[in-house]
Design a binder for these strands. Structure first.
Ligand SMILES: [Mn+2]
Ligand SMILES: [Mn+2]
Ligand SMILES: [Zn+2]
Ligand SMILES: [Zn+2]
Lengths: 148, 148
DNA sequence: ATCTCAACTGCAACCAGTTGCGACACGGGG
DNA sequence: CCCCGTGTCGCAACTGGTTGCAGTTGAGAT
């Protein structure tokens, strides 16, 4: 049961419209899933959820849409230390960059916002004269519970 | 032409010996390549170079050895913003962690060592009570030359 | 030096992600 | 409202990374 097209287009759809990106039935399904996902979906999960909204969605369309959203800077791609297999995870890019920590024992994923991270990025921009578009800090280790 | 086994075993082989890891003909070839690589090899390059030392080396052995070295903390795995395709890059882990920057236009890869990065990791360990084993900061953007 | 056996390997089948192609549908203009 | 052009889609073939298996080999013990 697809969302009514006229209501709640969601931010991602709005951003795409602003940028003149063509909106298709399949993209609506995929964006809808990304929009409402609690967190960190991999491509297979995204495909399954999108197919519940539009059964015709194909694997290749999911990957193509992920590439599009990545290029547009609307989502981030994560490894999460490849805790489960080899694939990547995706999440909506929010206002503030955050760090990801993955516990190598229990698999828990934690997020952390830090001013020092912002300072580090400024240092890179200044000292290396490098204009940052996207940044990813991922840490593997042991969470408070598992390091006891 | 394999290196003479008795000379210059290389640090990676030494580390493996210390840890009681069995040394095979194929691993010697692969470690030899990692040891002497200038930088950032992907799995296909590594396979080709290793096969020049030992033609019997198989794709699956390369991946299995990479997994071993990763688990042992002897190499780091990088995305380098997937500048070329989807795969991963590998490099010997050295004394000091460094940041990777990839230019989205010319593809140049830069490295940077920063005390602020070290401070950020300390903050994570303290504030999140998270024991860090491995960390990866990768940045995409435009290098000094390309951002003009 | 030889024996022994768990660890390792190549192989082939498998699975996840990519790509070329002809069909289709979004959405701007008439 | 319908037409049209082009961007997107599903499909199927392909590529790169993984895995189960049966044979091989490294290295410690005798
Ligand atoms: Mn990755
Ligand atoms: Mn490096
Ligand atoms: Zn944990
Ligand atoms: Zn550049």
């Amino acid at each position: 049961m697809p969302l009514p097209q006229t209501e709640m287009p969601g931010r991602l759809q709005a951003y795409c419209a602003e940028r003149g990106i063509r909106m298709t039935q399949q993209r609506r399904a995929i964006l809808g899933v990304m929009e409402t996902a609690s967190k960190h979906l991999d491509a297979a999960q995204l495909l399954r959820k999108a197919q519940k909204l539009d059964a015709s969605v194909d694997r290749s369309t999911v990957y193509r849409t992920l590439r599009l959203l990545k290029r547009q800077g609307l989502i981030d791609e994560l490894d999460l230390m490849h805790i489960h297999g080899e694939g990547h995870y995706y999440e909506r890019k929010l206002n503030r960059d955050h760090i990801h920590m993955a516990c190598l024992r229990c698999g828990k994923i934690m997020e952390f916002v830090s001013d020092i991270f912002e300072k580090l990025k400024s240092q890179v921009e200044k000292d290396c004269r490098f204009r940052i578009v996207v940044s990813r800090l991922e840490i593997g280790g042991y969470c408070a519970h598992c390091s006891k």
